[in-house]
């Protein structure tokens, strides 16, 4: 099993390298989609079916959003010449980061033996205390419902931000063409 995890992680690293280095933006976006589906498969193997489902669906929607943001534009002019200083700096930080993690993870508990101090209580008591047999649902909606409330607030803020950035109304008075072309309902 642990070999499958390694193979999937190598697949994801190669996918992200393709996504970062390719010239064609559409293939970059699709490569990111491949990385996301790899993450979702890994979640499934790691015993987390809840987030595997969520990751697949979120991946579909984010692919649509990224393709929407990419395809209309003229992307040929960008990335023609390589900015050598930024590339060297980026590679340096990449190497530094990996070295630092190798040093830092030597103190972490080994893979496959989690600490699970609080989680033991959640696992043992979820069906008796909350009535939910899916322990993850019990944790996000009963033990830690505050987290979900905060998540709802963050999502609300990002919707508000996207609308404020994208709106056309308010900058100039609406005329007939706006309603015809963009489907903006005047009120």
């Amino acid at each position: 099993m642990i070999a499958i995890f390694h193979v999937l992680l190598f697949f994801m690293i190669i996918g992200s390298a393709v996504a970062i280095e390719t010239k064609n933006m559409l293939s970059a976006v699709i490569a990111v989609g491949a990385v996301g589906f790899g993450v979702s498969l890994l979640f499934l193997f790691l015993g987390a079916p809840d987030i595997a489902i969520t990751q697949v669906i979120v991946e579909i929607l984010s692919l649509i959003i990224l393709i929407r943001a990419t395809t209309f534009a003229d992307n040929r002019a960008v990335e023609r010449k390589i900015d050598s200083f930024a590339t060297i700096t980026g590679l340096f930080f990449l190497g530094f980061f990996v070295m630092a993690t190798v040093w830092a993870f030597s103190d972490l508990t080994p893979f496959g033996e989690p600490l699970m101090v609080v989680s033991q209580r959640y696992l043992a008591g979820s069906s008796a205390e909350t009535g939910a047999v899916n322990v993850v649902a019990g944790v996000i909606l009963d033990y830690r419902a505050y987290d979900t409330l905060g998540e709802a607030m963050v999502l609300f803020t990002s919707v508000l931000g996207a609308f404020v950035i994208l709106r056309r109304r308010g900058k100039k008075p609406l005329d007939e063409a706006d309603t015809e072309q963009f489907g903006i309902i005047s009120d």
């Binding site: 649509i64 943001a69 009535g131 909606l141 996207a162 963009f182």
Partner: peptide, 28 residues
């Protein structure tokens, strides 16, 4: 208890918010 109810409300909240974002991206 309240967990199925919360699931329904969370689904309404998340679904409608992302649909609104998508309308914003594709129409506006």
């Amino acid at each position: 208890g309240m967990i199925p109810l919360c699931n329904i409300f969370i689904a309404l909240k998340v679904g409608a918010a992302l649909y609104a974002i998508f309308i914003g991206l594709s129409v506006y």
